[in-house]
Amino acid sequence: MPAYLIDMTMRIPILPSSEITPESAYLDRRSFIAAAGVIGAGLVGAPALGACAAPAADASQQGSLGTPYGLQPYDQVNAWEDVTGYNNFYEFGTGKDDPAANAQEFRTKPWTVKVEGLVSKPGDYQLEDFLKPSKMEDRIYRMRCVEAWSMVIPWRGIPLADVIKRAEPTAAAKFVEFTTLYDPQQMPGQRARVLDWPYNEGLRLDEALHPLTLLVTGVYGKELPNQNGAPLRLVVPWKYGFKGIKSIVRIRLTSTMPKTAWSTAIPSEYGFYANVNPEVDHPRWSQATERRIGQFRRIPTLMFNGYADQVASLYSGMDLRRNY
């Protein structure tokens, strides 16, 4: 296939009229340049993406989406339909469109979050009380799935560090364990033993306290849709997406490395750290490049998903090939 043909491959589907809502000010294009600050900056070496890329949004629209973190000059925020229609959330089915189809009846109110383990101030919180002391932030992050596709997503949430500090971890606390709701009645995917339910994830305490690590309650300035992990999920932008555990009911501080769902299921393919790393292949595919959802051409995968400046020091001296 001639290269010039591929250069005109940005997909810009028309938004169905049913989607046009008052919020559609920033939804009326499938995707657009998100970060005014980075447009034109350091274009040298940027991948040649589509020649007919969607037009950039004006400044007011970008403001409504949030602050860009670690975006590349060529990064464009993915469309609402991409972010909310293409999900890995096995509790609602293993197909990418299963969560959007099966999670609509999921009840997220009321919602209780338990903070426990090696903390001075454990507690059971109603979600509203849990979130109230922190300031909500809108942040645009890159998201890299371990399956070698990626998106750019405008999240809304609070730094995880806020809630952990509030709980006052004891000196023995070294890790944080997260657990998803277990409710096969509401989560049909849990009726089949695909993973060892409930889904659990973990971070080292320093990773959990890192300012980039977010507890997310919204996307695109709106409440998180159920298929995206409502009402509370984790987002760790330098790690593969499966670390972003959804529908969290428990946060526990521990002294030992917690078990995590995917590394328990297939330890040879998924590790505890799961840092995005173009040099360490998944056994079944290369992680050197990725396909950005909504675009045709592959882009290079960046070390720590483009957040190396902020997080590489967390792993200095570690063999990242062994600690995948």
Binding site: R11, P13, I14, E81, Y86, K96, R291, I293
Partner: peptide, 15 residues
């Protein structure tokens, strides 16, 4: 059509 003409017959990841 999805890749070059902006349709969405095959969903979010037509490839």
């Amino acid at each position: 059509s999805d890749l070059f003409f902006g349709s969405s017959y095959l969903g979010t990841d037509p490839v």
